[in-house]
Simulated scan of single mutants.
Amino acid sequence: MAEHLASIFGTEKDRVNCPFYFKIGACRHGDRCSRLHNRPTISPTLLLSNMYHRPDMITPGVDAQGNPIDPRKIQDHFEDFYEDIFEELNKFGEIESLNVCDNLADHMIGNVYVQFKEEDQAAAALQALQGRFYSGRPIIADFSPVTDFREATCRQYEENSCNRGGYCNFMHVKMIGRDLRRKLYGRYHGYKGSRSRSRSVSPGYRRDYDRRDRDDRDYRGSGRRSGDRHGRYDGDDGGRRRHGSPRPSRSPGREGSEERRARIEQWNRKREERE
């Protein structure tokens, strides 16, 4: 029985744990979901909920006044946002991937997922983001269970063939240009200059998703360097690590799905013991 439960953990057959929260860190039912959302107490990945507001938020390709927007302006707006977020979060440690959802459903629209190389870097970033604002809106940040974006992203969207559009339940990750990717990620040792949308997805590798069941630009008090172009953060530095201070100790190797399932099962057992 235990082996059977372990084999179906985080899948549609699991009637206890929510498979969508496990895979994408968000669920359309929210707190009303009939299945458990096992929120991690530590993770290398942070979710910044509903953070990116595109200029054609109401109607794709059209501004709030009903006027068409040049697609290049929409992309420029997004890349300004992406660079701004990357430069701010990079102060806490090496970023392995930064993914922004292009979905339209309420629980996914504008979601930003940042995966750090180390869990303690993510923890430091989370602490510093508490109580801060971006472009006049509060930043809602929390640890995310997503550590493998191969299971979270929509393969059909990457192939321009998703028939669910913006209301797909898997991530439609918005892509940045090659030059910006090289500029941001090229600072890291080992960068090879060619990356897929998510740096955690190996080039050429795609999981078979067909089996799935789919149901202002100024810092104010943020300690920003002079010369940086973008940013709309409010709040203090949050105790960032100073240049030249020792790097935090490395966390264990990156967890895959099996390790994450084992950790969540352990959380469930501890919860049952407390009850």
Results as ranks from 00 to 15, higher is better:
A124F: 04
V62T: 15
E88D: 10
Q121T: 06
P68G: 07
P60N: 08
V100D: 04
G93C: 03
Q127M: 13
H53K: 12
I42G: 11
E79M: 07
N38T: 14
Y113H: 12
E119G: 03
A122C: 05
I74K: 06
S43L: 01
G61A: 06
R72K: 11
Q65T: 09
Q130D: 13
F86E: 05
I58W: 11
G131D: 09
G110R: 02
M57T: 09
Q130K: 15
K73C: 08
Q121C: 13
D80S: 15
P44H: 09
Q121V: 02
E94N: 12
T45Y: 05
N90V: 09
R54E: 08
L48C: 01
P55S: 10
A105D: 13
Y82M: 03
E96G: 13
R54G: 04
Y134A: 01
L48D: 00
P55N: 09
D70T: 03
C101P: 00
E94Y: 09
F133M: 10
Y113K: 03
T59D: 08
Q65F: 09
G131H: 10
S43C: 06
H77T: 11
T41A: 12
H37I: 02
D70E: 12
N99V: 15
S43N: 05
D120S: 15
Q65R: 13
G66Y: 07
S97K: 11
K117I: 11
K73S: 11
V100W: 03
P55Y: 10
D120N: 14
E87K: 13
E118D: 15
M51I: 03
C101N: 12
L48S: 04
H53D: 07
K91H: 10
S49V: 08
E118I: 06
E96V: 15
N67L: 11
L47C: 09
Q121Y: 08
A64P: 00
S49E: 15
L47Y: 03
D106M: 05
V114Y: 01
